[in-house]
């Protein structure tokens, strides 16, 4: 299929991008890597008037170290994320999850920021951003603002990005201390979206689990934290039994959908099993 006709704008700076979005008419779409948007346009599920392509905005690409946080440009591709030494050192969970996104070709084009802004509940990276307490840096006509991941994802395919706003970069606090991470993804075939996935980061201290952060993929219209499990793990023994016990509450507060691959109750079950596995692996058990 062929997309419906549209106007095409290719800014080279964030300011130009914001301006292009403002001038793009009623129905403007921002294109990052295009790996979801182009198929959606080909299927004519979306037929924007204007497409603003961020592909040449160099300042939105790359990873930099800002002391206590990494700053990842929204247009940094998945392939770049996977091989980035800073991410490998300070935010390995992102790299591990990104490796599971789609396939090699898609990872060459798809971007970290695009995946977050798309806010697909089955996408892998929103739950990771949520688990890591990432901060979204957003540019708009009235300047920049920063939104925590916990407030960024609003609904199915919907974020707090207002009309005219562009996600520019993502600040990811470095994990300090003895953290282990694991992205546990469950799908039927290799290149498919997650049926359910669990992003876990676990800090161990003296044979105990001091802190656990757990993000859930595809357990509701937005990514979610497994808060009850996190609470149960805080201070728990680093033992398989304790982890299994805590994981039983992983689906609390979730509202997963039912589709071909899984009905809601099965997703709830998977969330528990995958949380147990992710936490156990992250805790080195």
């Amino acid at each position: 299929m062929i997309p419906a006709a549209f106007e095409y704008v290719r800014p080279t700076t964030v300011d130009e991008a914001v301006q292009a979005v403002a001038e793009g008419g009623e129905d403007v779409k921002i294109m990052a890597g295009g790996q979801s948007l182009i198929p959606v346009m080909r299927l004519r599920l979306a037929a924007p008037e204007t497409v603003v392509d961020l592909g040449r905005v160099a300042e939105m690409r790359g990873v930099r170290d800002e002391g206590d946080a990494l700053v990842i440009g929204a247009m940094t591709t998945h392939a770049e994320v996977v091989t980035d030494p800073l991410i490998a050192q300070h935010a390995k969970l992102i790299a591990e999850a990104t490796e599971t996104v789609a396939d090699r070709q898609t990872r060459r084009r798809g971007t970290f920021g695009g995946a977050l802004a798309h806010a697909d509940p089955a996408g892998d990276l929103p739950a990771v951003a949520l688990a890591l307490d990432a901060q979204m840096v957003i540019a708009g006509p009235s300047g920049r603002r920063t939104v925590p991941a916990s407030e960024f994802f609003v609904d199915y395919l919907t974020t707090t990005l207002d009309e005219g706003e562009v996600l520019v970069e993502i600040r990811v606090p470095k994990l300090a201390g003895d953290w282990g991470v694991r992205y546990e993804k469950f799908n039927r075939v290799a290149q498919a979206w997650s049926i359910v996935a669990v992003a876990a980061a676990v800090r161990r201290e003296n044979g105990h689990i001091a802190e656990a952060r757990i993000g859930l993929t595809n357990m509701g219209p937005t990514p979610l934290r497994a808060s009850a499990t996190e609470a149960a793990l805080a201070g728990a023994a680093a033992s398989p039994d304790a982890v299994a016990q805590a994981a039983r509450s992983a689906a609390e507060g979730t509202s997963p959908s039912s589709d071909l691959n899984a009905q809601a109750d099965y997703r709830e079950h998977l969330a528990q099993v995958l949380t147990r596995r992710a936490v156990a692996t992250a805790a080195g058990l």
Binding site: D27, K29, I30, M31, A32, G33, G34, Q35, S36, L37, I38, V40, L45, A46, A47, P48, V101, A102, T106, G110, G113, G114, A115, L116, A117, H118, A119, D120, G123, L157, T158, T159, L161, L167
Partner: peptide, 9 residues
Amino acid sequence: PASSLGGDR
């Protein structure tokens, strides 16, 4: 109806 996608993967 055009979907309300904000970006992509």
